[in-house]
Amino acid sequence: MEERGQPPHPYGSMTAFKEVAAKSGKTLHEIMLENEQAIMGVDAAKVNAHLDLVLDTMLAGVELGLREEGLLPAPFAFHRKARRIHERAKAMQGGEALLQLVSSYALAVSEGNAAGRLAVTAPTLGSAGTMPALAYVLHHHLQRDRQAMRRGLLAAALVGYLCKNNASVAGAEVGCQGEIGVASSMAAAMLAYATGASLEATEVAATIALEHHLGMSCDPVGGFVLIPCIERNAFGALKAYNAALMAQNEIVSEHWEDLDRVIMAMLQTGKALPPQFREMGTAGLGMTMVNC
């Protein structure tokens, strides 16, 4: 096994991360970048090149998915809809158009994953469409440059690490809250930080997004990453967008919840879910949607 270096800025929680930031005077992205360089034994250019690979893969997944139509591989007829929703959205106005555009971006990548296309585990393949949808928004709608998008991705990595290290990102362990919930939390942090939010507001964005996925079961129909997984990516992206907006429009010092406690709640809730609601496909939609 390849040896890895030690991070110069160790932390195990968001509380500890904020203490590191306060003591060092460094920003979120500086801490994450320096840790990654030390752990992997590479320079900043190498880290940025990998961040670019992740971002380019996400953006390309959206583009490809918006061009494809037809059935997805499954034992039942399941039609792609990302392209249709995207085309319809372009004829709509205002907020309705944006809601449907964001949804189409998430659906595009999720449908591609279901068809065996290349996707980024962010944090899982079942939730691979949520972050790319907001990366696409950052690039095409908000015109953020690559540096801002890299920093946003580092903020998402922080949230993903904390969720995985202190709870889980596996539907088989904690239900879909660990997959779509964490993906939405990561996407909210990415969007907030890439658009200039402080560390504190970025945490609030991630907190809001994760909190409002608590209790979500994992009950795939037929064991395929189709129903309800694909549409859940779209709703995870929309919740992430709203969470980032709310976090930047409220007084963060007055926000009661914090990310560490919501992650603890996710773990506790996930462990309390009956096993059949944790990726077994034998309860919930996995049972009611099957033709017997």
Rank of each mutant, 00 (worst) to 15 (best):
M14P: 02
A265R: 14
A38R: 02
T195I: 12
G286P: 09
H29T: 10
E30F: 11
E2F: 06
M287G: 00
L53V: 11
A74H: 07
M1D: 11
Y11I: 04
M92L: 14
F277V: 03
A197Q: 00
G65A: 10
L153Y: 01
A194F: 06
G196W: 14
S110Y: 00
R278S: 00
A119K: 04
L71N: 10
R151D: 15
S198F: 06
H140W: 11
T202W: 04
Q268E: 14
G281C: 03
V62D: 01
C163I: 06
M190W: 11
L33F: 03
P220F: 02
R261C: 12
K239H: 12
F235A: 07
I251R: 15
L99W: 14
G281E: 03
E87Q: 15
S198T: 15
M58K: 07
E279R: 11
L134C: 03
G129M: 03
R80Y: 08
S110C: 08
S103I: 04
R150P: 08
R261K: 14
F78A: 15
F78C: 13
L245W: 15
V221F: 00
M186A: 05
E173S: 12
R84N: 09
Y161A: 07
L214A: 10
S168D: 03
N249G: 14
P123A: 05
S110T: 06
N233W: 08
C176K: 03
V174R: 07
D52L: 07
N242R: 14
E19Q: 15
L267W: 12
V102Y: 01
G70Q: 15
M216Y: 00
P132S: 08
L71M: 13
Q6N: 12
P8D: 10
K46G: 09
E211T: 08
R146D: 11
M264R: 13
G112Q: 04
G5I: 12
P274A: 11
A82Y: 01
F235H: 13
A45G: 06
E279N: 14
I263G: 00
C176G: 13
T15W: 09
E36Y: 00
N233C: 05
R144K: 15
L107D: 02
N166K: 12
T202E: 00
G94V: 06
D219S: 09
L153F: 02
K271P: 00
L72G: 02
G196R: 09
V159K: 04
C163T: 02
T288R: 14
A91C: 07
L226R: 05
E3M: 08
L118F: 04
L51D: 05
A197I: 09
L125V: 13
S104W: 05
E87S: 04
T130Q: 05
G112V: 01
A106I: 00
L51Y: 03
L210R: 11
V62I: 03
H9A: 10
